[in-house]
Design a protein around this nucleic acid. Structure first.
Lengths: 227, 227
DNA sequence: AACAGTTTCAAACAACTGTTTTAATCATGA
DNA sequence: TCATGATTAAAACAGTTGTTTGAAACTGTT
C-alpha cells in the first residue's frame, strides 16, 4: 500500500463496508487490511461513525459536484429554456453510472452507496439527507420546469423509482446473477441500458386511477403521456 | 402477545431486522420484544442464522406461490397464446406490492425483503437464490414468450432494474422523504404508480448503441419499441 | 398420581466489540 | 543535537455478542 495511514484506512473501510456492511465490519478487520494499528482509526477519525461519514463524504461531495456541473452545462446551453428530460436524467444518473464504472475506487463506493440509501440507521440517513440537499433541490427544479404537467408528487415517486433502478444497476452484478448468467463487464452498455429504462419509466403514461390533482383536465385522462 | 413463543419471536425478529438490519439486531433485543427468554431463540431455531432464514421462508414461500398462481391464472386464460407484458408484470410485481400493503405482517416483511436483495452476506444470497429459483424460471419463460424480439440479456437487465424500482417503492417511505414530503399512505396509488413506471421502462426503446445480437434486423434500429 | 416429553428460565461461557491509555517511535525545524 | 509535535504501537478497558448449561416448570398420557 502506497498512501498514508489515513487514506489506507479509508480505502480498506470502503471495501469492507461494501462487502460486509457497516455493523459486520469491525475496526480490527479494517486496520488489519490497511496494515495499520487498531488505535489508528480512533486517532485519525475519532469514532467508527465518523469514519463511516468520511468514507462517504470523500467521494459523495465530488459526485454531487459533478452532477451539478453537468446540470449547469446543460442549462447554460439551453439559455433559459427547459431542458429535455433526457438531459436531466443524464446529468444525475449518467454521472453516477460513469463513476460506478471507475475501477479506481469509484466502483466500490457506488455499490456501497446504492445499498446505503435504504439503510435504516439514523445517523446515516440524516447524513445523506444533508449531503444531498443541494443537488436534490437543483434537480427537482430542473425536472419541474421540464415536465410542468406532471404532478409533483407523481414525479417524486418516479424519481425514487429511478434511484432504485440505479441502485440495482450499480450493485447489480451479484444480485443479478440470481436471474441468470449476464455480462456486466461493459460500463457503456450498462449506461445505455439504464438510460433507456429510466427514460421509459419517467415518461410513461400517468397512472389512470389517480386524480391528477393540479394539472389541467386532459382529453384522454387515462393514457396521457407524462411529458 | 397472543401466539406462541416461536411465532412471537419470528414477529419481533421481522420488525427488528427491518428496523436495524441483521447484524445490529441482537438476540436480546428480539427476545425482549417477544417477551421470551434469551435462550428461546437457540432452543426453537438453533442459531441466529437459522432464525433469519425462517423469518424469510415463512412469508417468501407464500409470496412466490401467489406469484406462480397469478401467472397460472393468466396463462390458463390465454390458452397458449403469449401473455401481455402488463399481465406478467402484474403477476410478479403486483402481487408483491399488494403484499407490501398488507398491514398484518406483510408490510414489514416486504420492506425487509427489498433491502435484502442487495445484501452481500453469503448465506442470505444463496438462500434467496434457492428460494427464488422456481419463480424466476417461470417468469423468464413467460417474458421471453411475450417479448420474443427482445434480446434475453437485455431483458434480464430490465427485470433487474424493475426489481430495484420495486425495492425502493416498498422500502420507500423513509428514503423518499429525502426528496421531499410525500404521501405513501395509499397502497392502491403506489400500485398504480409503480406499474406505470415499470411497464414504461420495460417497453422503452432498446438502447441504440448495443448490437442487438439475435433479433431480426429492424427497420429503425435506434428507436424501436421493446415490444 | 406418577410419568415422559416439551418448553422456559436464570446464569454463566468464551469470544469479540469500540474505545482509551500509556509509552515508544518518527519527523522536522531551531 | 535537542526539543517539539505528530504518529504508531501494544496492552488493557468495560461492555456486549451468540451460544450453552442444568435445573425448574409445564404439558398431556397412562
Amino acid at each position: 500500500m502506497e498512501p498514508d495511514t489515513r487514506s489506507r484506512i479509508l480505502n480498506s473501510a470502503e471495501n469492507l463496508f461494501m462487502e460486509h456492511g457497516f455493523e459486520a465490519t469491525t475496526l480490527r478487520m479494517i486496520t488489519a487490511a490497511a496494515h495499520a494499528n487498531l488505535a489508528a482509526v480512533n486517532y485519525h477519525f475519532g469514532t467508527k461513525e465518523a469514519l463511516i461519514e468520511e468514507v462517504f463524504r470523500r467521494r459523495l461531495t465530488w459526485l454531487n459536484e459533478q452532477r451539478i456541473a453537468a446540470l449547469d452545462a446543460f442549462e447554460a446551453e439551453a439559455k433559459g429554456a427547459p431542458l429535455k428530460p433526457r438531459q436531466i436524467v443524464e446529468a444525475f444518473f449518467g454521472v453516477a453510472i460513469r463513476m460506478a464504472a471507475d475501477k479506481s475506487g469509484g466502483q466500490t463506493f457506488m455499490r456501497l452507496l446504492g445499498r446505503t440509501y435504504t439503510e435504516p440507521t439514523d445517523f446515516i440517513r440524516s447524513f445523506l439527507a444533508e449531503e444531498y440537499a443541494e443537488v436534490i433541490a437543483r434537480f427537482k427544479a430542473a425536472f419541474f420546469k421540464a415536465l410542468p404537467d406532471v404532478p409533483q408528487e407523481e414525479f417524486l415517486w418516479r424519481f425514487h423509482f429511478m434511484m432504485g433502478a440505479l441502485s440495482y444497476a450499480i450493485s447489480g452484478a451479484d444480485a443479478l446473477r440470481i436471474l441468470g448468467p449476464v455480462d456486466d463487464s461493459d460500463p457503456e452498455a450498462l449506461y445505455a441500458r439504464l438510460m433507456s429504462f429510466l427514460i421509459g419509466g419517467l415518461r410513461a403514461p400517468l397512472p389512470a386511477l389517480l386524480p391528477t390533482i393540479h394539472s389541467k383536465p386532459a382529453r384522454k385522462p387515462r393514457a396521457r403521456r407524462a411529458a
